[in-house]
């Protein structure tokens, strides 16, 4: 029995094929990303599985999972909201956006709502400063030019998902 779904494994295999045959480890970042999309976060078992699948030592996988900050090495809420507060976003009101989110969700950065729906984290530069302020929903969806109305609408949308 596999730790990951056949769909996930197929995606991982596609990534492995991008690299020379003796460099399966190159696919570890994608493999962890794909595993995280399926599982929500990277448990010890999941990382062990990925290590085994790619022929790596588990600690080498753990090094990667803890180095890149988009991996969830602890369980997170259904929707992880990552707000960039770096200088260009801050100049455009990122702190107010963050405060609004904190207030509406009743949590601080690094926390998860009791109903496990939302996790709020502080992000670093996402390379989209022209669209500031902005946030990421579950790593892969970017919301730009944020203001209070947009925040409210986003939370309403996600709550009903």
């Amino acid at each position: 029995m596999s730790m990951l779904s056949a769909e996930s494994l197929a995606l991982i295999d596609k990534e492995i094929a991008k690299y020379p045959a003796d460099q399966r480890q190159s696919a570890v970042m994608s493999a962890l990303r794909i595993a995280q999309v399926e599982k929500g976060w990277l448990s010890t078992e999941t990382m062990d599985f990925v290590a085994h699948y790619l022929g790596m030592q588990p600690i080498a996988v753990y090094e990667v999972a803890t180095f890149y900050n988009m991996y969830n090495i602890k369980p997170v809420g259904k929707h992880k909201l990552c707000v960039c507060t770096n200088l260009p976003c801050k100049l455009m009101g990122a702190d107010e956006i963050a405060d609004r989110l904190k207030k509406k969700l009743g949590i601080e950065f690094g926390e998860t709502t009791e109903d496990k729906q939302f996790t709020l984290v502080e992000g670093e530069c996402m390379g989209a400063c022209g669209d500031a302020p902005l946030l990421l929903v579950n790593n892969h969806r970017m919301e730009s030019f944020l203001n209070e109305e947009k925040i409210d609408a986003l939370l309403d949308e996600l709550k009903n998902k």
Binding site: Q23, L32, R33, E63
Partner: peptide, 22 residues
């Protein structure tokens, strides 16, 4: 695809990252 590390913009860190390392 990277996954959240500014330092990978440094070219040798980027190579390490492609090799599946931190």
């Amino acid at each position: 695809h990277g996954y959240g590390a500014y330092i990978c913009g440094e070219e040798t860190a980027l190579l390490e990252s492609i090799e599946g390392k931190k």
